[in-house]
Design a protein around this nucleic acid. Structure first.
Lengths: 138, 138
DNA sequence: ATAGACCTTCCCACGATGGGAAGGTCAACC
DNA sequence: GGTTGACCTTCCCATCGTGGGAAGGTCTAT
């Protein structure tokens, strides 16, 4: 059994976040010592690592909760897990595309700018609305 | 001269955001009618559009403020603008890379999962920590 | 016994955005 | 003139996930 600090160190989730996850119900309340300290066993650390890894894959907390529920459910269908993962892939793809568009637009402007000590600057001209080229409403 | 609603419609910035930008000092305080309504002229709308476009390129508000300052500064060096833009490109690249890594890891897992009605699921196994493959600390 | 490293709860902040309440104003129409 | 509906104002709250820090309690080692 370990303190929250040790659990944090061995799971990669900060103590702050562990408390937050507990508070929001993502993870079950930790055990407590008589003096009120939270206690964690290896199984709890495994749960924390699970959360950490799912977050590293970009899942929002809500989806992490779904994944945890499936993890606990011995009678789950792997298809359900796969669907969650595929949906997440699509979300990532959309974000990547969006940012690539930004990057392309920005690089275009960068290339057109001399970048010297003169004031003339196509980047500012463009932002100022000289040639409208809507990127896409956020 | 127009109301905030019209300024919002013709700049693509919501009325809420226009007030927020004013409150945080990103844009100068709008004029007011005797009854307290904010008033906007074409120049103000141009500023709003500038902000909108810079945000569309992913610049955080702080950098938008820098860009606005350069825009107003007749004696600027275009190199300063270009540096801001290049830094932003690098930030976008970093984010894109990060998300591509997530996506690749996730796709790998997706491909290894049968996605049928059986409980066996390599995705959950991986999240559960069976085979560690750190993605990278956030 | 005291120091220092831990823990607890509680509140605040971020970045940008939206929602909504409570109340004032304007324009148009009868 | 009066009413209606669309606008405007300010103010507060929520998001999402994370960190900072204060005020106070606990544990461990010297």
């Amino acid at each position: 059994m370990m303190n929250i600090g040790e659990a944090a160190a061995s799971s990669g989730v900060s103590a702050k976040m562990i408390r937050y996850y507990e508070q929001t119900g993502l993870i079950p309340p930790a055990g407590r010592t008589v003096s009120g300290y939270r206690t964690y066993g290896p199984k709890d650390v495994q749960i924390l690592r699970f959360v950490r890894r799912a977050r590293d894959l970009g899942f929002p907390m809500e989806k992490v909760a779904d994944l945890l529920a499936l993890w606990r459910d011995r009678g789950r269908a792997s298809a359900d897990v796969k669907h969650l993962a595929e949906a997440q892939v699509q979300i990532l793809e959309a974000r990547i595309r969006e940012m690539q568009e930004m990057k392309a637009a920005l690089e275009h402007l960068v290339h057109s700018c001399a970048g010297d000590d003169r004031a003339d600057c196509p980047i500012l001209d463009d932002l100022g609305g000289r040639s409208a080229c809507e990127v896409r409403p956020r």
